[in-house]
Simulated assay, not measured.
Amino acid sequence: MNAAKSGDTVRIHYTGKLEDGTQFDSSEGRDPLEFSLGSGKVIPGFDNAVEGMAVGDKKSVTIPPEEAYGPRHEQLIQVVPRNRLPDGMTPTVGMDLQSQNENGQVMQFSVTAVDEESITVDGNHPLAGKALSFDVELVEIV
């Protein structure tokens, strides 16, 4: 059997869980996830987990934050005065927002708190700072 290697396009089924067992994503009930190993389309630890697997292999892996979405950065949490928001905007906790920095780069934020004077936004990926566990099955090497 051939082992998956960098450059191969693979199709996998997976279930992702947090350390407390909470499931955050799964391909169950959907088509398998297809990507090229080493292309940067998935987190590095996921690429590393699939490399070397053969079709039909199943494994469970835990990926540390450094090989997933990185550490949390407290400087990405900001308090924004409500008067800096667009007119008519009614922010709510959990709302996703976009902003451009001075270089024109689009930044993604999630609203984490709202009060009369300001909102708090977090630019960290929701899974930043977390170890992720995956059950993976290699379905096909295309």
Rank of each mutant, 00 (worst) to 15 (best):
G16W: 00
N83V: 11
M107G: 06
I119N: 05
S27V: 01
A128V: 10
G129Y: 01
G29K: 05
A49Q: 05
A68C: 08
N2P: 14
F109D: 04
A4N: 09
E74D: 09
I119E: 04
S36Q: 15
G21N: 04
H73M: 07
V55F: 06
M89N: 05
E74M: 05
S26K: 01
S39K: 02
T9E: 14
L76H: 00
A68L: 06
R82T: 09
L76P: 05
I12Y: 06
F134D: 00
R30C: 15
E117N: 09
V50I: 13
T62Q: 03
T112H: 02
I63R: 01
V55C: 07
V50A: 12
A54V: 14
Q108K: 11
H13N: 13
V42P: 08
G88R: 08
L97S: 01
V139G: 07
D47S: 07
S133C: 09
G129Q: 05
N101D: 04
M1N: 13
V42S: 12
H73R: 09
E19Q: 09
E117W: 03
D8S: 08
T22E: 07
I141F: 00
L33C: 13
I77N: 06
R84W: 13
Q100I: 15
E66A: 12
D87F: 14
G16R: 00
V42L: 11
L132H: 00
V79W: 04
K58Y: 10
E66F: 09
D20L: 05
A3D: 07
E140S: 06
L76S: 03
S36F: 00
T90N: 10
F109W: 13
R30P: 11
E140D: 10
S36R: 14
G88V: 15
L33T: 14
V80Y: 08
